[in-house]
Amino acid sequence: MKLLIAAVLGAAIAVPAAAQDKTQLRIGTEGAYPPFNYYDSDRNLIGFDVDIAKALCAEMNAECTFVAQDWDGIIPALRANKFDAIIASMSITAERDEVVDFTDKYYNTPPAIAVLKDSALTEATPEALEDIVMGAQSSTTHANYAEKHFADTELRRYGSPEEYKLDLASGRIDAAIDDVVVLSDWINSEDGACCKILATLKTDPEINGAGAGVAIREGDAELQGKFNDAIAAIRADGTYDEIQKKYFDFDVYGD
């Protein structure tokens, strides 16, 4: 009986000890950028970013929790230690690299422009778009892209993609710029039946960067290395492809 009690107590002690071996990480994401990160009907965070984050955490033997954060404040929140990493389709750019560190990319897709289905616009050139109003989410590479490449277009910035989608659908703006996957996902839904893709744009490396990566606080080389190893591992073992096929019928990893 004493041996049995000792064995039970030993097992009870071993479980918490094993749990304590796991790294505790808080992952920041936006929750308003389908199909990459958004809420389902039960208010659970889902999407490609979320599934990739879960796969990376599993590969790293980390216990991860998610923290939703508005896009405009997501980098300041990381720097203020509200969470440990951002996995929210954040493009790796030189400007952001001055205040956070990035891992290797985990996907890379180009920007695009959407318009109403009955729009008279037929091409996405600076000349064709100079007298229109274009919407973009603020503090994004897509807003920066429009500012640089469509300098004579009136640019209207929004706090979230849902806001510019509503204005485009109602005709309050003439076009919207965002990631081609985000716009395609929207126009293929009931809410986006109003609109179409006008054009997919050529990526500007200076603005769009080298793809989307995991952002971490500056100087955390250990965590950066663990994420990089995990990204390489899920790419190699097929986990990445399994997740990708849930959302896309093409390769979003890019060149």
Rank of each mutant, 00 (worst) to 15 (best):
L201I: 05
S119R: 01
E63N: 12
E242H: 06
F48Y: 11
P16S: 04
P205K: 03
D251M: 06
S41F: 01
G171S: 13
D167P: 10
A212Y: 00
A233L: 02
S119H: 01
A19P: 03
F83C: 06
R43D: 15
D42K: 05
G31P: 07
K148L: 13
P35R: 05
Q20G: 08
P205S: 12
D101Q: 07
S170A: 14
L129A: 02
A58H: 04
I132E: 11
D72L: 05
L3T: 15
A68M: 08
A11V: 13
L121W: 01
I113D: 03
R43N: 15
G225N: 10
G73P: 01
V8F: 03
S89C: 08
E162N: 14
T109D: 04
Q20M: 09
G171C: 10
E190C: 02
A80S: 12
K148W: 01
Y38T: 15
T109C: 04
G73N: 10
Q24S: 14
I74V: 05
A17H: 04
Q69R: 09
D118W: 01
L9R: 06
A6N: 09
V252N: 12
E162A: 13
N81A: 12
P111E: 09
V100D: 12
D49W: 00
K196M: 11
T140N: 07
Q69W: 02
D179Y: 05
N61V: 13
E218V: 14
V180M: 07
T203I: 10
I177Q: 01
D40L: 02
Y145I: 00
A176Y: 01
